[in-house]
């Protein structure tokens, strides 16, 4: 008896909250996404009726140029930003673990510090470094003849990428360092006896063995990218380049709370979730394939 009831007792609090705040809302979102409304009267003052809409909202979402553009923007953002961040985190981790550096503890703490700064506050801080007139960086660059408008329509995506990279590089670096520390010392000894250079050690011992950690960081970063919301939303008031539908998440938010189109907002949310799921699965698949091949 004991082993049949005990696990459920232990699971119960978690499951109740988990089902109530995640599973139920997901099903609600799916339900909403198949619904459309009909309003009677000029502004729906005669009441409104819901009806089953099949895949209308999904078709509308995927043919909505702004929404598709926002997904494309996030893919571009993800490819560039996630790559830069993971490469930077890996290089920093290898350098810190190479024992060639002085004060590694200080550097590690410094790089990790931004993780403790909420995205909202990080964005506020960086935005002050982007605004002409307030930013010393813009002043310094201007003094040497470089005029960059960090908040300009073409530049602002990379200004956001900078904020995200700044916040999460150190965190990802710590995951990789942890993995590096678990590499058995004998491997290094063997490499040393073979006279391998440290570059070679990095390439043939360290990088293959930290692949699981890299995968983990890549997947979390992909999910993070698709969720991008706070940073662009805060910069929206300062940059003409950011519209209300700049990222998929902002788009869903706008449809829900500004455009009165809940069915569409739900369909977009579901698409974001499915996309995150698919991208993560693809990333895992690629990783497994490479492992087999390697």
């Amino acid at each position: 008896m004991r082993s049949r009831t005990a696990p459920w007792v232990l699971l119960a609090p978690f499951l109740v909250v988990f089902i109530g705040t995640m599973i139920v809302p997901i099903f609600m979102a799916i339900g909403y996404s198949f619904t459309s409304v009909t309003r009677s009267g000029l502004l729906g003052e005669g009441g409104l009726t819901n009806s089953f809409a099949w895949f209308d909202n999904y078709v509308a979402a995927l043919t909505n140029a702004n929404f598709v553009a926002s997904i494309g923007r996030m893919i571009l953002f993800g490819i560039v930003q996630v790559t830069v961040m993971i490469v930077a985190a890996t290089v920093l981790a290898l350098l810190l673990e190479s024992a060639s550096a002085k004060w590694p503890g200080f550097f590690r703490a410094t790089y990790f510090l931004p993780y403790g700064i909420p995205g909202v506050i990080a964005t506020i801080l960086w935005s002050f470094l982007y605004i002409p007139g307030l930013s010393p960086i813009v002043d310094v660059l201007g003094a040497v003849g470089i005029n960059i408008d960090f908040l300009g329509p073409n530049m602002v995506l990379w200004s956001i990428a900078n904020i995200v990279t700044w916040t999460y590089t150190g965190y990802n670096m710590l995951i990789i360092i942890a993995q590096l520390k678990s590499i058995p010392g004998e491997l290094y000894e063997a490499a040393k006896l073979d006279g391998a250079s440290s570059l070679r050690v990095a390439r043939s011992i360290q990088l293959p063995l930290i692949r699981p950690a890299l995968m983990l960081t890549v997947i979390f970063s992909i999910i993070g990218t698709l969720q991008l919301f706070a940073e662009p939303r805060l910069l929206q008031t300062m940059s003409a380049g950011i519209t209300s539908e700049y990222t998929p998440n902002m788009s869903a938010y706008a449809f829900a709370f500004q455009y009165n189109d809940i069915g569409m907002a739900a369909a977009q949310s579901v698409i974001i979730a499915v996309a995150a799921f698919l991208l993560s699965a693809i990333a895992l698949g690629v990783s497994n394939w490479m492992e087999k091949r390697g």
Binding site: I19, M28, G31, V37, G263
Partner: peptide
């Protein structure tokens, strides 16, 4: 859990 699931089914119909 069951009640929550039932709620989901009902609520899922329409916003």
């Amino acid at each position: 859990t069951g009640a929550a699931g039932m709620g989901a089914a009902l609520a899922a119909c329409a916003p």
